[in-house]
Design a protein around this nucleic acid. Sequence first.
RNA 1: GACUCGCUAGCUCAGCAGGUAGAGCACCUGACUUUUAAUCAGGGGGUCGCGGGUUCGAAUCCCGCGCGAGUCACCA
Length: 502
Amino acid sequence: MSEETRRQRLREIDQMREEGVEPYPYRFEKTHWAGDIKNEFSTLENSQTKEDVEIRTAGRVMALRSHGKSSFFVLRDDTGRIQAYIRLDSVGKDSFEIFKKYVNIGDFVGVTGFPFKTHTGEVSVFAKSFEILSKSIRTMPEKWHGLKDKEIIYRQRYAEMLSSDEALNRFKIRSELFRLIREFLAQRRFIEVDTPMLLHLTGGASARPFETRINVFESQMFLRIAEELFLKRYLVGGFERIFEIGKNFRNEGISYKHHPEFTMMELYWAYADYNDIMDITEAMINHIVENLAGSTRISYQGREIDFSRPWRRVKMADFIQDNLGANILEDSDERLIEVLKKHNSEPDMKERGHLIEKLWDLVEDKLVNPTFVTEHPVIISPLSKVHRSDPRVTERFELIISSMEMANAFSELNDPIEQHRRFLHQAGLREAGDEEAQMMDDDFLRALEYGMPPTGGLGIGWDRILMLVTDSPTIRDIIPFPLVRPISFEEEELQSEEELQE
RNA sequence: GACUCGCUAGCUCAGCAGGUAGAGCACCUGACUUUUAAUCAGGGGGUCGCGGGUUCGAAUCCCGCGCGAGUCACCA
């Protein structure tokens, strides 16, 4: 990495200090944000000044247009960009010299002055004084094309954020999403709780966990793959409407819709069933999409998705029957395998639940608009109640949007004897080599034996909803700091350190 | 994991009949007191992803590796 500019900056910083200009001061009293200034003074006439208003704003210098005895520069903060104007006769010769000599694109600068509109009608700040707040020693990405290299974008997300307003906004939307959820649920008497991520055994979902070790107990531990089993313990304890938003970790593949660390929300609602959960899911996602995208009809990767209610509901067995001609409730295993093979899908295991999952995968991509797929067979739903009028299936639904599973919910199984039986079946699968089968959780069963109210439960992968709302083609675009293969910048960093030691 | 494509200055890219590397932005110097991709003049900056091979000579051709992107397969 040859970095002439960086070396120049380091020299400049020394020089600044010699001249008594601190490159990294402690504080700036900021009274106005870029977006606010633009809004508040948009009604000024061209060339009009408002000298009675004092503005103190700060941000990163994104553009610098120097004209000898004056300069225009653009400051960017997390509300937008605002142009500032500085001139020799307003800040004085010494100060102006410092500006010319030391302010570069990329630096943080604070400005004190008053609002005005330029001849060409841009709301700006007329600087009466300025302060360098933090010197940057690396060059910014190109101002017009920005960063395009995906590798840099993912590995140095800060570089994308600081150079792309679109990126900054994308992650502001992420934050806004979680604010909206909390607001929505608080209005309905749901309270936010938390559960452990570090566990002695995992459960609540079918997935391979990350393994780690704890030194004090000298024992193996797992990162959680779901919040479910602990949130239900809250219900046993007496909580009625709870939710948790947090990370889950699954030691499986990475794809445009899978990321090993992802943000899941689970919600449990005592005295409700899966029909109630369907209603609240529909209402909540509808509410969030409308607020974030401005409409319940959005365009995702060139395809329209319509969130207007009510959403389509199809029974899993019917949908597979209609599309593949297989009956997952009645047909023999052999018949299911036959159908799978006909569609070039080779089952890894002959276990019936696995066959059903594979069949489902074949038809999932037919669903674009929000669709509730309901009544999954008991065999693939170890934590949900048997359907009240059909013992072959459960009171369960998954929400599919744009071929992605967005939510999974059911009338929660609260019969401890039945739950024990289901765990035994899962344990059998595990012994037969299914690494994703659930583990027997005796403490959870003990909790159920104390009694858990009838409950509707829900899990939503909000990252995927966020993909839709921001029209992002991959989940990595909406995870601020996605997982990347560790390597490659060692050399670069080593060199940087050597330079610093000079 | 398989296949396809990519990796050249800090960033965005050009250069590939094999002849020793270029532009724009950014940076430095100078001019310029309402510009907005400011303008004008001049200048510095590269182990062409890494390693090996072919060749008098490789950014360019061949092989291996690394990292990334896309498609497919699998788990939310």
